[in-house]
Simulated assay, not measured.
Amino acid sequence: MSRARTVLVIGGGAAGSAVTVLLRRADLTVDLIEAKDDWNATAGSGITLQGNALRVLRELGVWDRVRESGFAFGSVGITTPDGTVLHVARDLRTGGDDLPATLGMQRPQLQRILIDAVRAAGASVRLGTTAEILGQDAQGVSLRFSDGGEGRYDLVIAADGLGSTTRAAIGITAKPEPTGMAIWRIAAPRPAGVTRTDLAYGGPAYIAGYCPTSDTTLYAYVVEANRDRASIPPQTYADEMRRLTRHYGGFWPEISAHITDPAKVNYTWFDRMLVEGSWHRGRVVLVGDAAHCCPPTLAQGAALSLEDAWVLTQLLTGADTWDDALFQAYYERRIARVRPVVEASVQLGQWQLDGVRDADVPGLMGRTMTMLRDLP
């Protein structure tokens, strides 16, 4: 092309930040808009990053900061509700042998690292800003912004999450659907003996687990059948989570003692969604949760979103022409990897909802994670 290509990224989460950094590295002009005034306001409590997520973070140039900020480990423990360890399994290194199998970190810290990378890359960032698509043709997309400005771009990348308004605006009707489960989460101080994820099955919840997120912190969670959110006043969130966790032993009494502030407890339903057929309409393309989401039973949500950004950037920067064929190639490359992860993540939860006692959980998890060792 005789002029520099221009890209608008809508959404500043993991996928939007990653694709912005990677495109700027290729010397494309990138503007990023984020609807929230505070980019880090709802970053959440903690996150478990498998090796294939770490592989992309290394490509972004932020791996050293991530490693210093998080807590790396290589196994998962299965316990009884009273804390008795039944089995310790080695985690598969899905990012390759030169990266940890798993790293936990505080989600706000990951967001801060990505924000810093976006700003260092030289992208234009506007917070508290949304966009309305006015029209598009074979060469680009015209938009009006909520701050009153207008713009035209060669490409718009919709990274605006599960409830993506951009997805709906371009006529893709897929919406997230609840799976029947919900999760309580909180960040808390890390007991000295917690050096990996432990999962307790049984008791009053389907799963009670925790993940170390630094030398001094962890995030803890309990998974139960979803309830009507309106029936749970936010001021009771700490009481509700503590009511569930008090039935668990091991490190749980020490963790539960810190579940006191309802404002620090997060309650969300598990959702599933997979946009089928294509992830674009014209010059608008979806990445991350705007295109797919799954329960965190395999801890792959952020990893898949980061991979989307990496793959899309490879295709965009390696092509002279941005057209339907390129965007369809992006979809076909990603759907073959994303679909089995979404389906496996949902199946793991469904087996619990249905009370299936002889389900091949290790086999399904092993097959899915082995697939993820391959480059996306």
Rank of each mutant, 00 (worst) to 15 (best):
T313D: 10
P176V: 02
A174H: 14
V7M: 14
S164L: 00
I232A: 04
Q50S: 02
D147L: 05
T317N: 08
D38P: 00
T20F: 06
R339T: 07
K264V: 08
V275G: 07
P233M: 04
L364M: 15
R152M: 03
R55T: 03
P234M: 06
L315V: 14
G203F: 04
A53S: 01
L92Y: 01
V223N: 10
L22M: 14
D228V: 00
A325G: 12
L110P: 08
G209H: 07
G202W: 05
A263I: 10
L60M: 06
A53Y: 01
Y201W: 13
G349M: 02
I33L: 06
G12Q: 10
G135D: 11
D97S: 15
S305D: 07
L60D: 10
L99E: 05
V156T: 04
P376Q: 13
V66F: 09
P108S: 11
S2H: 12
C294Y: 01
E307H: 08
T260E: 15
P362I: 09
T317P: 07
N40M: 02
G77Q: 13
G104C: 04
P212V: 09
D91V: 02
M369I: 09
D374N: 14
G12F: 05
G193A: 14
L57G: 06
D91Q: 01
P81D: 06
D215T: 13
E59P: 08
G11V: 14
G209N: 03
T260W: 10
G203C: 12
D64G: 06
L49V: 00
R229V: 10
A72V: 09
